[in-house]
């Protein structure tokens, strides 16, 4: 049904959000910018987002992916709330988590349905590739 437009065609939209109260936004901003330079339309929400704000943003933007960054150690509480709200709202948007995440917590996050978890030192290339795969862009 959709007309295929080229330069003016909508591109997959991605939400990058700082979930929770911590202010360490360096990584989130670097990743948002790298994804923009890889051709995505990236909505950066800024800091201090609640799980429901992030989901609401993704809904209003009709986003194809949510990336959250948490460096305060509160990832278990915040991400489980995020996943719960996504389910409640009946939307199907993959979630990436980045931050200081101990290995055993990473497994628990994946079990909650998170698509992938990245820690410090992950090459940007790797993140761009997984995002492309998840939103189905070539």
């Amino acid at each position: 049904m959709a007309v295929q437009l080229i330069m003016h065609m909508p591109r997959p939209k991605i939400i990058i959000a700082k979930l929770g109260l911590d202010g360490h936004d360096r990584g989130a901003k670097v990743i948002a910018r790298a994804l923009a330079e890889a051709g995505f339309e990236v909505v950066y929400t800024g800091i201090r987002q609640t799980p429901s704000q992030v989901v609401e943003t993704a809904i209003q933007e009709d986003a194809k992916l949510i990336g959250v960054s948490i460096l305060s150690g509160s990832h278990m509480e915040l991400v489980s709330e995020l996943m719960k709200i996504i389910k409640e709202r009946g939307v199907d948007i993959p979630v990436l988590v980045g931050g200081i995440i101990p290995p055993e917590d990473r497994d628990a996050l994946l079990k909650m349905g998170v698509a992938a978890v990245y820690g410090p030192g992950t090459p940007l290339r790797e993140i761009i590739d997984i995002v492309k795969k998840l939103v189905g862009a070539s």
């Binding site: 591109r11 923009a36 330079e37 051709g39 429901s52 209003q60």
Partner: peptide, 17 residues
Amino acid sequence: TGGSFMGNRIRMQELTS
């Protein structure tokens, strides 16, 4: 690249909900 870094929401996020 055709991509875009969209930061205008930052200021308005409180209104999102």
